[in-house]
Amino acid sequence: MIDTDRLPYWVNWLAQDRDGTWWGFEAEPHQYHCGWYENEVGRSLRIASAEPNPDWAASLRSRDS
């Protein structure tokens, strides 16, 4: 799992794309056919790579979850 203590203060949301890439978002991201994208309101940051995740659509969570 992602160590949220090491993330920038502005990362409020975490999500994993289908290819396994973890992202941090400032604002709640939008889902598209194979991942997540920032909603043109906040910043995003590529955090880590992992194995592809067939359940990626259920990965969105707030930083405090």
Rank of each mutant, 00 (worst) to 15 (best):
Met1Asn: 10
Asp3Gly: 02
Asp3Ser: 04
Thr4Asn: 03
Thr4Met: 01
Thr4Ala: 02
Asp5Lys: 13
Asp5Leu: 04
Arg6Trp: 00
Leu7Trp: 07
Pro8Ile: 00
Tyr9Met: 00
Tyr9Ala: 08
Trp10Met: 00
Trp10Cys: 01
Trp10Asn: 01
Val11Pro: 05
Asn12Cys: 07
Trp13Pro: 03
Trp13Met: 05
Trp13Asp: 05
Leu14Val: 04
Leu14Ser: 06
Ala15Trp: 09
Ala15Cys: 09
Asp17Lys: 00
Arg18Asn: 01
Arg18Ala: 11
Asp19Met: 00
Asp19Thr: 01
Asp19Phe: 02
Gly20Phe: 04
Gly20Ile: 01
Gly20Cys: 02
Thr21His: 03
Trp22Cys: 06
Trp22Met: 08
Phe25Pro: 03
Glu26Gly: 03
Pro29Leu: 11
Pro29Phe: 10
Pro29Arg: 10
His30Met: 07
His30Thr: 07
His30Asp: 15
His30Val: 05
Gln31Met: 14
Gln31Glu: 15
Gln31His: 10
Tyr32Ser: 00
His33Asn: 09
His33Ile: 04
His33Asp: 14
His33Cys: 05
Gly35Trp: 10
Glu38His: 14
Asn39Leu: 01
Val41Thr: 14
Val41Tyr: 12
Gly42Val: 06
Gly42Arg: 11
Arg43Phe: 12
Ser44Lys: 12
Ser44Val: 01
Ser44Glu: 15
Arg46Leu: 06
Ile47Gly: 05
Ile47Glu: 09
Ala48Gly: 11
Ala48Gln: 13
Ala48Arg: 14
Ala48His: 13
Ala48Asp: 15
Ser49Ala: 09
Ala50Phe: 09
Glu51Cys: 01
Glu51Trp: 02
Glu51Leu: 07
Pro52Tyr: 05
Pro54Met: 04
Pro54Thr: 08
Asp55Met: 10
Asp55Ile: 01
Asp55Glu: 15
Trp56Thr: 11
Trp56His: 10
Trp56Ala: 05
Trp56Glu: 09
Ala57Asp: 14
Ala58Glu: 15
Ala58Arg: 14
Ser59Lys: 05
Leu60Ser: 08
Leu60Lys: 10
Arg61Ala: 13
Arg61Trp: 06
Arg61Thr: 13
Ser62Lys: 15
Ser62Pro: 13
Arg63Lys: 13
Asp64His: 14
Asp64Thr: 12
Ser65Ala: 14
Ser65Cys: 11
